[in-house]
Design a protein around this nucleic acid. Structure first.
Length: 522
RNA sequence: GCGGGUGUAACUCAGUGGUAGAGUGUCAGCUUCCCAAGCUGAAUGUCGCGGGUUCGACUCCCGUCACCCGCUCCA
């Protein structure tokens, strides 16, 4: 597909999102706000389904007794929901505070804005032979702070002293609760903590529909494992997360798993891979990030123990010091190490020691006498964007094809081919015509579907063909039609498939079970 | 943030210095026994927002907001 076609299809998707109630611009009646979006009646169902598919896969269906296929070992998985505003020190210790506060310099002459630490390598827009700020005509402002974290004030009389931040990622809530979770829920390493929630970033350039928003929702999981197994776990989660998208209907041609180059890695990461989708708003062959799966080592827990970490000249993580030799941003001072009692109990006989204390004393000369039984767990973090995944599913579902109308003439059809589990509406109940007892019969079935908790719609408005198309356009996988045969003969209905247009007849009483069965097996 | 483009009904878009139309969609009625059918009727816009010029602005000018494209940015 040419790039112009790709852009055109994106325009159609955006228009459909608005027309059918998937996604609206936030505060639209006031002119809108850059970087903020609202989900409409169908969008909220779709996004809920995305979230639930993730939570089900991660938490609800996870069986801690057996290792899932491909996993190095059995593991446990729990969920949390932590607050959006956290203690300001969290962001200082994690590094976000320093990292997100960029010094920016404006040029009054060329109207350019530059990151102060990048200026030496950015050509002056007016005189590209010189670097920004070095041309005689340049009129630079003083460097100013640009904080990518949303700032707020705690307390009604709050001053700048009471400044706090909306979280730019949900992950820190899992790290700061690490000890609480270990102490309260009897989990043992390796285990994961999952969370779904809103995050906020003051993006400089929100763009591409909901892809880069200032308020967005993340589906993050922090997986804590022994340091010597972290590589295997990283590879496991990377592949498993890629497959999650494939299983929910993303064609593998549009989806890639891309390992980061070493110079692309965050300062704390020893390995990161992105799950990326070929969005229609990108040029052909370019992909946008849906999810980052990062091997974060012990960076996060260590930061919250010791304080903000930086790499020293040897590439080792050390606490960053201020001019007085004190930590630049102190940590909590809590001991967040983990004692692997299972492994120690297993090994202690062969080690010839009675207690862990004795083991440590025996190894008192070592660098880390508690190793490998007491350690800071390493972290594997699959961090997915719920809005980005939702957008990818929307783009992937969009199809235009041609189907014959009642006169046999081909008519174009817009159909959203959502995976049935993601479809906002699962089934529509349609009386073929508005009389002959069909509406009554249809309403009865509709009530039964409702009672069974299946999201469904009832529609008796206008011709049957048009109603099918309406449902196609919002991606409803099945339509049940009540006709004369239902009422006058054998109480059977037709069940129409969105993609094949094929119809099967089945007894009205079996519709709820059949739809449930199809949803389960999809 | 910079440069370019765009902004008229729910959607797609016409339009003119004299306060607005089409198609689709939506709604109501009739008809209709399976894929955007037909007929009849109806509702909807302060022409993105604010200011200026003008007797009069949707139209011209300025500002602003939003969207798209290109740069920049992207933990």
């Amino acid at each position: 597909m040419a790039d112009t076609d790709r852009a055109a299809s994106m325009d159609k998707i955006v228009a459909l999102c608005k027309r059918k109630g998937f996604i609206f611009q936030n505060s639209e009646i006031y002119g809108g706000q850059n970087g903020f979006w609202d989900y409409g009646p169908l969008g909220v169902e779709l996004k809920r389904n995305v979230r639930e598919a993730w939570w089900r896969d991660m938490v609800t269906l996870h069986d801690p007794l057996d290792a899932p296929a491909g996993a190095p070992a059995p593991f446990q998985m729990v969920g949390v929901e932590t607050s959006i505003i956290m203690h300001p020190q969290v962001w200082k210790a994690s590094g976000h505070y320093d990292l997100f506060v960029d010094k920016m310099v404006d040029c009054r002459e060329c109207k350019g804005r530059f990151r102060q630490d990048h200026m030496a390598s950015i050509p002056c827009p007016n005189k590209p032979s010189k670097m920004a700020g070095e041309h005689d005509a340049c009129q630079l402002t003083e460097p100013r702070d640009f904080n990518l974290m949303f700032k707020t004030i705690i307390g009604a009389l709050g001053t700048e002293e009471d400044a706090a931040f909306l979280r730019p990622e949900t992950a820190q809530g899992m790290f700061t609760n690490f000890q609480n979770i270990v102490d309260s829920s009897r989990v043992k390493v390796p285990f994961g903590v999952a969370q779904v929630g809103k995050s906020f970033r003051n993006e400089i350039t929100p763009r591409n529909f909901t892809f880069r928003s200032r308020e967005f929702e993340q589906m993050e999981m922090e997986f804590f494992c022994p340091p010597d197994q972290s590589r295997e776990w990283y590879e496991y989660w990377r592949d498993r997360r890629y497959n999650w998208y494939v299983n929910l209907g993303i064609e593998s041609d549009n989806l890639i798993l891309r390992d980061h180059e070493s110079d692309e890695l965050s300062h704390y990461s020893v390995g990161t891979a992105d799950v990326e989708y070929q969005f229609p708003f990108l040029p052909e062959g370019e992909y946008g990030e849906l999810e980052g799966v990062a091997h974060r080592g012990d960076f996060d827990l260590r930061s919250h123990m010791e304080g903000k970490l930086v790499k020293d000249e040897n590439g080792c993580l050390v606490v960053e010091k201020d001019e007085n030799g004190q930590p630049r941003h102190r940590g909590s001072g809590r001991d967040l190490t983990y004692f692997d009692d299972t492994a120690f109990e297993r090994d202690k006989e062969s080690l010839g020691v009675k207690s862990f204390k004795a083991y440590c004393e025996q190894r008192s000369g070592e660098n880390d006498p508690g190793a490998p039984y007491r350690y800071i767990p390493h972290v594997i973090e699959p961090a997915a964007g719920a809005d980005r995944a939702t957008l990818a599913f929307l783009c992937e579902a969009y199809f235009e094809d041609e189907q014959p109308d009642e006169k046999g003439k081909l008519q174009s059809r817009t159909v959203m081919r959502f995976h049935p589990r993601l479809a906002p509406v699962k089934v529509a109940v349609l009386p073929l015509i508005k009389k002959g007892g069909m509406p009554e019969k249809a309403k009865e079935l509709f009530h039964n579907l409702k009672t069974a908790g299946i999201v469904c719609q009832y529609d008796e408005q206008s011709a049957i063909g048009r109603r099918y198309r309406r449902q196609d356009e919002i991606g409803t996988p099945w339509c049940v039609t009540i006709d004369g045969q239902t009422v006058d003969e054998d109480n059977t209905v037709t069940l129409r498939d969105r993609d094949t247009l094929e119809q099967v007849r089945l007894p009205t009483d079996e519709v709820v079970d059949e739809v449930s069965r199809r949803l389960r097996s999809s």
